[in-house]
Every structure is written in C-alpha cells, then in structure tokens.
Design a protein around this nucleic acid. Structure first.
Lengths: 278, 278
DNA sequence: TACGCTCTATTGTCAGACAATATTGCTTTC
DNA sequence: GAAAGCAATATTGTCTGACAATAGAGCGTA
C-alpha cells in the first residue's frame, strides 16, 4: 500500500471526494518506513468514526463507498465517479477500487457496464439484510426509525421461530438455548449479559429448523448493538426480563409451541416499552 | 479475455478443478478471432447448465465457485485452492479470480488472510437471503426440501406483511397491488400470469411500510421460479386462486388488517396443497 | 428524418512485480 | 528435553501499466 493511502481514506471520510489532493501522482521512491500520519496536512479532519484499523484497503473503501450510498449521497440511478476518479481521490490503485466495487455489486448496491460506469441500483434491490449494509443503514440520520423497523421485524419473526423451535429443537440445540439463558442470569457485566442475550435469540433461530431464518440473526445482533445504548435499566427490570427469557426457554424445552410463541411476544412487548420510554 | 477462458470456465463445470490443463501458460500472440470452441478437446464435457452468456469472467467465476461452495464441494472450514490455482484452472488472470472471490466474501461465503488462503465460512454466516446464494442453494440435491423451507418462510412473513400493508398502504402502493391482481386475471399465458403474481406479492411487501421486508422479495421470486414447474393446474383451480388473490386485494384496499392476514393464510394453504399433491 | 459510421469514455481483463502477514519449522537457550 | 525466539516460506494484498470490449454521443449521409 502506498504510504498515505490509509490516511487519505481517513481524511476523506466526511468532506466528500471533491477535495484537491496533494500527492496524487505516484511516488517513485517507495518510501521505506511510512511517515504517513506525520506529514498529513493539519487542516484535514481525521475522522475516527468508520476507521477500520486492521482492514484491507479494498474493505475500507467498500465501507466508505457503501456508507455513502446507503446514506443517500448518491441517490439510486446516479452514476458514480469512475474507477480512475476513486483511485485518485483515495490514492489507491484501480485494482483496489475495483475489488471494493465488486463487493458492493455483490450486495446489489451497484451495477456497472463498460462505457457507462457504475450506478446506484434502486433501493428495492439492495440487500438490506446483509450484515454490512445493515450496519451502514443503521448509521442513518435517526436511529429511532431504524430501531423501530428492526423491532417490528422481530415481532414478525421471533414468535414463529420460537414456536418452530419448540417443535423441532434437538437436544443439542436445546442445550445451547438453555446455556445462553443461564449465562444471561449469571452475567457480571451488562455487556456480557447482552452477549449472552444475543446468543440466546440466535440459538432459537437455529433451532427453528428453517435454514432461512438463520440469516435474520444479523437483525437481532444489530438490534442489540443499538439497544445497548438504552443501558439504564433498573435491577428489578433486569430480573423481570430474565424471568421472561426463562419462560421462553422452559416452553421450548417442554415443546409447547403456542406457549413459546406467547412468551416471546411478552418479551418483545417489554422491549417495546423500554424503547418507547426513552 | 483470453480466447479460451470462457470455454475453460464451461468445460470445468463438473469435473472439479484438478484436471490437467493444456494451454496453461500465456499465449503470447493474442489470437485475433477466437477459434476457442473449435479446438476444445473432444473428451471434455461442456456443461450448459450454469452458462452465463453475457456475463463477465469474474461474475461467471463467482457463480461457479459460489455454486460449488453452497453445493457442499468445499465444506465450511475448508481451505480453498489459492488464487494462482484458480487462475490456472480456469485460464483467467489472478485479478479476475480476486474479484470473484471478493464478491463471495461480500456474501460471507468466504473469508481470507495472507499466508493462510481463503476458507469457507461456517454456514450460519452465509447470507442465504442473497439473490445469488439463494439461486445456488436452490439447485441443491432435492428441490423438495428447498421449496418446503421457502414456503414455510412465506407463512411467517406474508400474513403479517399483508396486515401491515392494510394499515399503511398509500394510494400509489394500492394501485400497484390492484393492477398486479387485475393483470393476473387477464394474463394470456401461464408465464405472464406468474409474473403478475410475483409482482402482486412484491407490491404487498413494499406496501407493508417496513423496509426490511422488501429484501425478502427474493424468496418469493425464487419460490415462484421453482413453483413454476408445478404447472399442471386445472382452469377451475386457477379461478379459485384468482378469487383468493382478489380477497387479499380487497381487504388491503378496505384497510382490514386481520381479514387481510386471514386471506393470505388461505392462499398459502392452497399453495401448500398444490405442493403436497405432487 | 432516419440510418449508419466513427469517436471516445469507461469498465473488463491481463500480466508481472513487490509488500504484508502469519504459519511452519528450525535453532537456540535454559 | 522443553520452551522460546527466529528465519524461511506460502499466500493474500496492493500497485502499475497495458490492451480489449462495450455502447453512448456526435456526426455525416441518404
């Protein structure tokens, strides 16, 4: 990687891509020990928000462009800057740009044709249930709406998933569910608790016996990530929530689909209240 | 593209990638008018199954590798052949291979690290709700199971989506739904009818007012694609199905969520029977 | 006006080089 | 002999520069 590529990727996070760029043309003498961050000009704001320290250039680039698209910088139908332009803007090679674009094409955010360029696909084609796209989508102007949408979706999915789990879970899957439930109760920190909570719900999806429900786990993960902000929960509330989870666990264990469904509905109603009361 | 690249892509469809390859090293004189298909050795079976005539090399490659992974040729955890190997196997450049792999990484089928290589991700991480992955998945050994899974999923999603649509549809969205319903009735061919049918269900998802439901349309499309085989339907059955659709349309129009939900359930039950009776 | 030609901008594909990385096995040391 | 550090090595990551294929745009001609 050219020494200042990552830096450029950072500094251009917010101010759009139109900014003039010093050092646009190749540095012939590949400088040995990157003084990149040292020689960054002071005026450029260095955003740490979407910084991905260990990530490769094309991955970072894909995140950057993907975020811009989802955010609405380039509305559907817009022709994006061409590959050479991106390459110049971020001081990365065209190959890196292409690999980034290929990733976005795989998520149906983009499509392209020779001589035309790359354009943003209509929103309906976006694969919103993709982990990355969802993450970009979640950074939208107001999280409130996003959270509401995800929560509504959970109401559709999770009760039925639990009912199926009650009917079809194997002993192994049951053990996973039970363990996650137990670990929720025993968790020392709230973060640890949230992780166990996530595992609990994902395990139920897996136990539902429908392969297509499993990928929806990303939604739950995303929901918990953003619900984590609503961290101000009283202890007795936590106890109550734990009881609700245990009720679900019990009804799946006893193979009572209807009761399991009802128990999940109760839990979701509780979560609704937590969100609403904010 | 090297003249015989596409041909190699084809001929290697089934026989795995271990086969010896003539013409592995670059042809210096870029031959002007590809005699590719002419000089293909007779023994190699040329599969037309997953042939994508207009597609680019990296897209075809991604389909080929993706299909193999989903099909189970490389179980999760397996380290794939390295980039150079793929490149040699299919007589394409390493860049093309990389772009293909990047696309599969974007779908969470793969991950990679330097010095290790690329490996197949655990199945739970696969984005099964992705259009391509779903298509590959649908070519699995027995379609029966796939169809059953999708149909079950529709039972979870569509009744609720319709209920929401009944509550929140705009006039424009209603018009879309009604038009699709009408065109179903007036369709001349069965294919035309199926297309209208698909549009009908997708329009309902859009009208539900929940952005996350829209991407699930790929499932419906896929279901109809594969249901299309069950094409032996009597005329009076078609009439009955049309009535069921009209009931849905009516209840959404009259903004009756519960009735809309019930109407969808009825339609799905009918579809269940069609599938079962095969 | 309609058709067809050329021009040209953009993605698609190729080739070859070097960098970064982390496993593997070797070597050293205790 | 075991543990720790070190070097060798295989693989992906990145860059560069070239040419091919494609299809829109503009022009000229019938």
């Amino acid at each position: 990687m050219r020494p200042n590529a990552r830096a450029a990727l950072d500094s251009f996070r917010k101010p759009a891509f139109l900014k003039p760029m010093r050092d646009a043309k190749p540095n012939k003498e590949r400088s040995p020990k990157k003084p990149a961050s040292a020689e960054r000009q002071p005026g450029v704001r260095r955003s740490d928000a979407a910084r991905i320290p260990g990530a490769s250039v094309h991955t970072s680039l894909a995140s950057e462009i993907g975020l811009r698209i989802v955010r609405g910088d380039y509305p559907p139908g817009t022709i994006l800057p061409n590959e050479a332009k991106w390459s110049e803007t971020f001081s990365v090679s065209r190959s890196a740009v292409r690999e980034a674009i290929k990733m976005l094409m795989a998520k149906s955010l983009l499509a392209s044709r020779p001589k035309i360029g790359s354009w943003v696909e209509p929103k309906e084609r976006w694969n919103l249930l993709d982990r990355d796209v969802l993450a970009w989508y979640a950074t939208s102007p107001d999280r409130e709406v996003f959270l509401k949408t995800v929560q509504e979706f959970r109401h559709i999915i999770e009760p039925e998933a639990s009912a199926f789990a009650a009917m079809r879970r194997t002993e192994e899957q049951m053990a996973e569910i039970s363990q996650a439930c137990r670990e929720m109760g025993e968790a020392a920190s709230l973060q640890e608790r949230t992780r166990a909570d996530t595992r609990f719900h994902l395990a139920i999806l897996r136990a539902s016996g429908n392969d297509l429900l499993v990928p929806l786990g990303v939604l739950i993960e995303s929901a918990f990530d953003h619900l984590f902000t609503f961290t101000t929960r009283a202890v007795d509330d936590l106890n109550h929530v734990q009881k609700l989870h245990e009720a679900i666990e019990k009804n799946i264990r006893l193979q009572r689909p209807d009761a399991a469904r009802a128990a999940v509905r109760k839990l979701l109603a509780n979560t609704d209240n937590v969100i609403k009361s904010r």
